[in-house]
């Protein structure tokens, strides 16, 4: 569920970049003030461990297909949320650079979806209370699976939101939700079971690693309190934005629950994009960024008129010119490339 640069807008990418950058420096401060020097090599090696385990295929019984793990919850259990968050961020950064998995602009989104959610939501609010201070194999199983499933559901939903607000994909919100959530239910289950059996194995072989006292000392009540405060602030911000949004359009919040009524939908997406266009104007980033209402199949007739009005009517001549020009540009690019290659070799 890596988000890709090609599917997000600079506004969404930039916002999440800023959010994750803030979170990362907070986590870095926490890890540093922890004074547990041992964590420096441990985080590095565990990051490499999760990265490499993502490449291992686990056969899913009864299906013949195979799954693999993301590792967010696993890392949070082993390292505590702050160190785990930084570790996930490092994995995603290397993946974005070397494997173009996700992208550099989408990195903020990906760290948020696969790092923040499991480390700061699924782990402290689901795994910890479920497993408690006296872990047992059953509790570990229950805690890991629930945490992984909830984490992945939230992550998938976050992908949908990010894609939707970017407005690049024309997929209607509800269709995308229906597409993403069930798939990630299955993925979350597999992730949860693998996490559970690995943690179960460690608990059996080397329980001192799992016992909260021995390993996660930094996870006292204070850090949880901080998380709650952070979440509260986040909630305030989103709440504020949403209510402002709702007040400017009484039906503004309905987009999330409205069915497939095209007319309504179109109008509202316009509203959403208008909202972002306004923000964009305010931050004066690339002023002529073109927001275009996504149309909807059931409202095709109506949209025809609107979109043609919204879009500068293009005459065939212009299209031909664009096509011819593009081909020539491509040819030019090829020859300039070849030329530079020759020049560079000399």
């Amino acid at each position: 569920m890596h988000m890709a640069d090609a599917l997000i807008s600079p506004v969404v990418g930039g916002t999440l970049w800023a959010a994750t950058a803030g979170l990362a420096s907070y986590a870095a401060k926490k890890v540093q003030s922890d004074m547990d020097e041992q964590k420096v090599p441990l985080m590095g090696v565990l990051g490499a461990f999760v990265f490499a385990s993502q490449m291992i295929n686990f056969t899913i019984p009864g299906t013949g297909s195979s799954g693999h793990i993301g590792g967010g919850v696993l890392l949070a259990i082993l390292l505590g949320p702050h160190a785990a968050f930084l570790t996930i961020a490092s994995i995603l950064t290397v993946q974005a650079l070397f494997f173009a998995d996700g992208g550099l602009l989408a990195l903020g989104c990906n760290i948020f979806n696969m790092g923040f959610i499991p480390c700061y939501i699924a782990y402290p609010f689901i795994y910890k209370p479920l497993v408690g201070t006296t872990p047992s194999q059953r509790r570990i199983m229950l805690g890991s699976i629930t945490a992984a499933v909830v984490g992945l559901q939230l992550g998938a939903f976050s992908v949908v939101l990010e894609t939707f607000f970017s407005g690049i994909s024309a997929l209607p919100f509800s269709t995308f939700v229906l597409l993403m959530q069930p798939i990630h239910l299955a993925i979350g289950l597999i992730e949860g079971i693998i996490t559970a059996v690995v943690i179960g194995f460690i608990y059996q072989e080397a329980p001192q690693i799992i016992q909260p006292k021995a390993f996660n000392q930094s996870l006292g009540a204070t850090s949880i309190k901080k998380v709650v405060i952070v979440l509260f602030i986040l909630a305030l911000i989103t709440g504020g934005a949403l209510s402002w949004f709702a007040s400017s359009n009484p039906d503004g919040l309905e987009w999330s629950i409205s069915g497939t009524n095209g007319e309504e939908k179109l109008q509202e997406t316009d509203e959403i994009h208008g909202f972002f266009a306004e923000i964009q104007e305010k931050v004066a980033f690339l002023p002529d960024y073109n927001f275009k209402a996504t149309s909807h199949p059931t409202a095709a007739e109506e949209t025809e008129a609107t979109s043609e009005a919204a879009w500068p009517a293009v005459d065939p001549g212009t299209s031909v010119a664009g096509l011819v020009g593009s081909v020539i540009t491509l040819i030019l690019a090829y020859f300039i490339g070849k030329g530079l290659q020759v020049a560079a070799k000399r």
């Binding site: 997929l171 209607p172 996504t294 199949p297 095709a300 025809e304 293009v314 065939p316």
Partner: peptide, 11 residues
Amino acid sequence: IFDKAPIAKLG
């Protein structure tokens, strides 16, 4: 599939 609004004409 979802966005069928005509935008340009090429011949």
